[in-house]
Design a protein around this nucleic acid. Structure first.
Lengths: 107, 107
DNA sequence: AAGATCCATACCTCGTTGGCTATGAATCTG
DNA sequence: CAGATTCATAGCCAACGAGGTATGGATCTT
């Protein structure tokens, strides 16, 4: 069972995939075709990347006729923010501990 | 030239590597041996992971006799925070645009 | 000095994956 | 209905990467 953070980080690790996600963040909902134009890779590759992003909970799709529109999933980045905050928190708390120690040593 | 964010995300994508980084965040400076005990992989593998984390700017090393101590690099997570904020910002601003639009339509 | 310990590097292997083309299903359009 | 368009899936391949063992350099320890 791949931990939840795994898919998240792994999804964003690939440059092509991250670029697609960034574009969706910047410009909002896009069809596969529109995304393919700027992706620099073939349409099937874009579709595969989108499937991975979707499975990671980063994007969602909406079907309309023969078009599929992708957009950023609400709260997509929340786990990333949480993880980062947690790690930064650990770091900070140890820093505080050191500060306390130094303060007590100072007395 | 691999963009800076690439190494960052790719470094954190691997579970073993991320676990090592998390441990350094939680418990502070550690020797390679200490990290290897809990890593579940061989010592050379741990060394390699640490080299990757170091190249990504996430950790730093300090040599002391035959021991090498690794610790989280100051400001390691800053680029990650920045990127996340930027993406969330794009999303938010488009949301605001929509809100404005709806507001104007409401009149 | 000899052995033990710590770590990094070299080398190999195998699974994963990101890319492609081909194709088919589904939907417009003439 | 026939062709065109949009997208997803399947199959394939080359490259990468994470794991292992073997080994050597450097440093304690006796």
């Amino acid at each position: 069972m791949p931990e939840a953070h795994d898919m998240l980080f792994r999804s964003l690790a690939d440059p092509t995939r991250r670029a697609i996600f960034e574009r969706l963040c910047r410009d909002g909902e896009q069809t596969v075709g529109a995304l393919t134009v700027h992706a620099g890779v073939s349409q099937p590759v874009v579709s595969k990347h989108l499937a991975i992003l979707k499975q990671a909970g980063l994007v969602r799709d909406r079907h309309e006729g023969r078009n599929t529109h992708y957009s950023v999933q609400l709260g997509a980045l929340a786990p990333l923010i949480d993880w980062t905050s947690e790690m930064a928190g650990f770091w900070q708390s140890r820093f505080d501990d050191l500060e306390d120690l130094l303060k007590r040593m100072d007395q």
